[in-house]
Design a protein around this nucleic acid. Sequence first.
DNA 1: ATCGGCTCGCGCAA
DNA 2: TGCGCGAAGCCGAT
Length: 497
Amino acid sequence: MTVGSRGRPGDAGCEVPPDRLRAANDAPVRGDGAYVLYWMIAARRAASNFALDRALAWARRLGLPLAVFEPLRLDYPWASARFHRFILDGMAENARAFGAAGVAYLPYVEPTPRAAEGLLMALAARAAVVVTDDFPSFFLPRMVAAAGRSLPVRLEAVDSNGLLPMRAAPKTFERAVDFRRFLQRELPPHLHAFPDPAPLADLEPALRLAGLDAGPRWPAAAALLAGDAAAFERLPIDHGVTPFRAGGSAAGREALRSFVGERLERYGEERNQPALDATSRLSAFLHFGHVSAHQVFTAVAEQQGWNPSRLGLENRGARAGWWGMTPAAEGFLDQLVTWRELGYNLASQREDYDRYESLPVWARQTLDAHAADARPRVYSLAELAAAATHDPLWNAAQRQLLAEGYIHNYLRMLWGKKILEWSPGPRQALAAMIELNNRYAEDGRNPNSYSGITWCLGRYDRPWGPVRPIFGTIRYMSSENTARKMDVKPYLRRYAG
DNA sequence: ATCGGCTCGCGCAA
DNA sequence: TGCGCGAAGCCGAT
């Protein structure tokens, strides 16, 4: 059988799983609407997207065309050339994909802060129903809630984030192994309910619309999407955080192809050698929605010649042996599914997922007990940002973050542990990690980016002796031991100051 | 270089 | 009640 096969649109199987769908208001579907509006804010892609599937299902049911509105705001925290460029690359490609299919698409980029105010309302005034993305972190939950309150038409939020619908988990989990065990019991049926991999193929004429026009106040971002450098430079965003690589679904698919085709089999052996580039580097494409977790899973499954009958029957939470794939592929899926969706689980269930108070009780107790310990070294946020510490390995990791918007997984743990050690207290350490990660990391602001940071402060971990200054029983890491475990020389060379 | 012990809460089978 | 498990910690023995 084909993994995740759902048949063509129009089949009964095309409807979105109910636990991926929620109403964001009580307003009605309007009978006199001119189109179904998809307000694309997180799953910024034209395929493998449950929200798009839902919008198409509405359009077919109501006999109305589909219109897609993809906005990019200016005034969100940490807005920079790095993130804007990545998102704009995706918008240019979405314009091509929707254009080729005959679907109306309005890409709107704010030229000045708050210029988009009123635009969603104006577009929704002609909509029968509005569908948007259900994304659990950053400013998006508040934005969708506010839109739900003000729109006079039904607003639905669709969860297209992971293999497991966020609402399929009834609780949060203290440790990855508990969530992994939950997945081993609950995930299999969801592997048969994937979003349509090609929802725009051979679209019925009735779904097409020549264009989505919001009038002269809100013109489509044609120049920016065409690559107008001067227009890009004029945007009042942080141009000191420079683009590292191209975004968009095509770049994402190429990153996926090269990883699965060329590096997946080395992943098990080489993932922890930071200079060997064996990791997937897919996180940013997943964060901005240019690639779906379902597409990544499908590519891995196909490379492995896998089908669901290979799944193990035991649910002990063991990392290896459950999927029925090679150790390298299972190691990668533990990242893609267990660890990634663990972060979405927490963010979707707790508004304070990014706050110190959300850390486990044992972690806060031991950190608080050692908050007043003497700090032999304390670095300011500016010194940390400038990679100006005494520690060459830490500086190299920070320079990789500055240049590439990414720190190798293993070294990011060390990076965070040292920020704890060098900050005036644990709360300031968390604040510094959030500030640096959200400003520079391509996938900052994502739920699992927060998981990675807060793991350094005890989240999803357990106490480890001996008790040390500053750390208490928080797991300790040192640059010296890291250098003993891996070959850091090529990494230090590559990211030398 | 590699391995086991440290240590312990949790879910689950019995 | 016992067993299996663990984001990549440390140390010491081989």
